[in-house]
Amino acid sequence: MIEVRDISKIYSSVTVLDGVSFRIADRSITSFVGPNGAGKTTLLGIISRLIKPDGGEVLLDEKSISEYGGSDLAKRISILKQSNFVNMRLTVRELIGFGRFPHSGGRLTGEDKDMVERAVEYLDLAEMAEKDINELSGGQRQRAFIGMIVAQDTDHILLDEPLNSLDMRHSVEMMRILRRLTDELKKTVVLVLHDINFAARYSDRMVALKNGKVAALGSVDEVVREDVLASVFDVPLEIREIDGKKICIYY
């Protein structure tokens, strides 16, 4: 389990995160929501050790992530950033093979190859497995990168705005894949989302950030409330229930 304990981050006298603490429930999807500049991406970066915090620590199973070795942590936590531009000629299968790097150091064993094939099948990438990743569309490339993370086989998966620059169809497809990862493969998924309705529809839990502090956290029902969201986003909004699912209207 991941625990965030009293995390602070200051960028040249601007406090981006200010004493943030919470636990992330295992085997569930947790979304970070909040206005621009609330510190969502920074927080995700700190949890994934891409960014060093100025105060506090991130614990994985009661042990600080800074005490884990690089490849040990890479077997437990993976992260996918929003820009997946790659400067190399690489097929989809080769990209997915990179997911096995923490396990085998780049020399794929028979077991690694099995894992790669399983990831290819799981994400329905068999048809394009030999294609150059730079020839794929944005949605396909995103899926290939998810394939790499599936092959990496970490129990925690972090994603920074995975729906950015995806159209409706691919956004829904992406969220369904993440749902399957949690429900079928028992993964813990943590992601930054901009669209509150996507977050409400597909998450188990939500963390709302505002000005570097946790403004609200809990189950979707606890966070997706008119009074809570209106104060987080500073915008009048209305929440309706359609077929038992909450939809937030703010346009």
Binding site: S48, L50, S83, N87, M88, F98, Q152
Partner: peptide
């Protein structure tokens, strides 16, 4: 050399894959 292969994926992805 194999770490450089991973580094081609970008800093974030290499850290995620355990490369310092």
């Amino acid at each position: 050399m194999r770490k450089f292969d991973v580094a081609g994926l970008g800093r974030e992805q290499s850290v995620s894959l355990g490369v310092d």
